[in-house]
């Protein structure tokens, strides 16, 4: 077998890769921003004293954890799409955000539960409502603790976003697939695409590590 690698396909189509990478970042970022409030709301819901809220939150988390993302995306796009079409762009974002939100909910829940009980008691003793104590005392501490697992979850979200190509979500993966289909430079293109995903996720890792360092500098 004689394979001649021709890397010129990369610089010659750089505009396509950049476009694709920007779309991937855009869709991941919007999904991420939507998944954070979902994670906080359902994470708190999981430990609510109200059994109905607790049940709904647990059901959400368990269902999302138990269903593959690929199946969820298909369900939203082809299933739900028969009655109510979100289109591939918003369908992708809704799928990614609800999926990621469930994992964030578990991370948020564990972060809240890791804050010592005395913190809530001190805040409530000063006259704060349960909500105020959460908002001003508990969540800021929980957030510091969960930054590392949240970072992992965000990295997973960026990587998982490559699945949206199956519901025609236009991103780096779909652009690369189309380019590979016309140029036949599979090894060159998919190697480069892997590299681009790695650069995106590794940069995010570094950014979050810096935030973490800055936050911890104040304490101890």
């Amino acid at each position: 077998m004689d394979i001649q690698l021709d890397w010129s396909v990369i610089p010659n189509n750089m505009d396509v890769f950049i476009q694709g990478a920007l779309l991937t970042l855009e869709i991941s970022a919007i999904s991420l921003l939507l998944s954070i409030p979902l994670g906080v709301i359902f994470g708190i819901g999981r430990i609510s004293r109200n059994p109905v809220i607790r049940f709904i939150s647990s059901a959400y988390v368990e269902i999302m954890r138990g269903v593959p993302l690929l199946v969820l995306l298909m369900w939203i796009y082809f299933g739900l799409g028969q009655f109510f079409s979100l289109g591939s762009y918003w369908g992708s974002i809704v799928g990614l955000a609800t999926f990621s939100g469930a994992f964030l909910a578990e991370i948020v829940r564990s972060g809240i539960q890791a804050v010592p009980k005395g913190q809530m008691e001190a805040a409530r003793s000063a006259g704060m409502s349960n909500f105020q104590a959460m908002r001003y005392i508990i969540l800021p501490q929980a957030f510091r603790r969960i930054l590392p697992p949240m970072a992992s979850q965000f990295i997973i979200l960026i990587k998982d976003s490559s699945l949206i190509s199956v519901i025609a979500g236009v991103d780096l993966t779909l652009k690369a697939k189309n380019l590979a289909a016309t140029s036949f430079r599979y090894i060159e293109i998919w190697t480069f695409v892997a590299l681009v995903y790695f650069i995106m996720t590794f940069s995010l890792s570094l950014i979050i590590r810096q935030i973490e360092k800055r936050m911890l500098k104040n304490e101890q």
Binding site: P116, G118, Q119, E121, A122, A123, R124, S125, A126, G127, M128, S129, I137, P140, Q141, R144, N218, E219
Partner: peptide, 20 residues
């Protein structure tokens, strides 16, 4: 109770200061 508690200061054995 939140209003009532503002009138009652409480000091804990383990301080429970907000570390951040």
């Amino acid at each position: 109770i939140n209003k009532a508690r503002t009138n009652i200061g409480f000091v804990f054995q383990s301080f429970n200061l907000y570390p951040f």
